[in-house]
Design a binder for these strands. Structure first.
Lengths: 155, 155
DNA sequence: TGGGGTTGGTTGAAAATCGAAACCGACTCC
DNA sequence: GGAGTCGGTTTCGATTTTCAACCAACCCCA
């Protein structure tokens, strides 16, 4: 009873759900249209029991839903829910970072806006000033969901 | 010799570096100004040998640098490099997702643009059309860093 | 001089987790 | 009726993580 049951940080809460070595890769595959157990398994090279566990956890967290795609025999595929699709910005951000710093600036895949073909960057973008916001121009303050112990952090 | 040594996806390459259960939490602490070994250790509750390993890996990946903050005895603290600071969009994206879906819409901490105080959202934002881009309005295409086997994926 | 405290670790053993492979049930197609 | 596919479960050895103890270097204080 020494540690509080709920941690007061949305990053940590999120990583508690999806922050292991496989889960985000599974979500990435679902974004790419790889939706079947066996396809994901061979694409990632993940052990089948782990894939079973991770998919069950994702379904449990309502990030993924299991839908039958045929009867006789019943076979299932996995699809992102709205929550799951909303992980898109996080995946895009990780991808852009990797493009820049691990892939040497040469993106294996680039993302574009359907409507106009603009290549998507993903920086925090201030919709008031209409400029990209650098990490050093970001402040944090306690929000409405803060549990207790007011505390502001600043880099 | 059966699997290629390099994988052709910036998301996977990134997660290979920072995609374990602790690393992004360490980076988050560094963003918040928690920079000393013992402070990080007590803040996260991570085992000390693991923290040693993870910090060494981060330094090795040039995401973090170890700088002495005193002599006699020499004591070190850990600071984000530019690469490390550029993980900011990814952390912001994970945090916003957590705010919405794990913290019930009530952010424990909110991020604001220094210059104008606007609360930052983080969606892919098309700088040409000047609109937020929904996951379903994003296409992908092979980029200049693609290794081989042309292949386009679409959700 | 000597004891206690702080920081940034290392070491070793137990516990939890992972990975590889074998197996399985329901159904297909041939 | 034999082989194949799909979506798993079971088993078990290997790896990783956790927990606790220990440690070296230096400080402060008397």
């Amino acid at each position: 009873m020494s540690t509080p049951p709920v941690v007061d940080c949305s990053i940590q809460r999120t990583l508690d759900l999806i922050g292991d070595r496989w889960t985000l890769l599974i979500v990435r595959d679902l974004f790419r249209g790889v939706r079947r157990f066996s396809r994901i398994q061979e694409d990632l090279g993940i052990a089948k029991n782990l894939l079973t566990d991770r998919l069950a956890a994702l379904v449990d967290a309502d990030i993924v839903e299991k839908v039958p795609y045929q009867d006789r025999p019943v076979r299932y595929e996995y699809r992102l829910t709205e929550r799951g699709r909303d992980l898109s910005p996080a995946l895009v951000a990780l991808m852009r970072w990797g493009d820049r710093y691990v892939s040497g600036g040469l993106a294996p895949t680039e993302l574009v806006h359907d409507d106009c073909g603009t290549r998507l960057e993903l920086q925090p973008w201030c919709t008031t000033c209409n400029v990209p916001v650098a990490p050093t121009d970001i402040s944090s303050r306690p929000g409405p969901g803060r549990l207790s112990e007011t505390e502001a952090a600043r880099d």
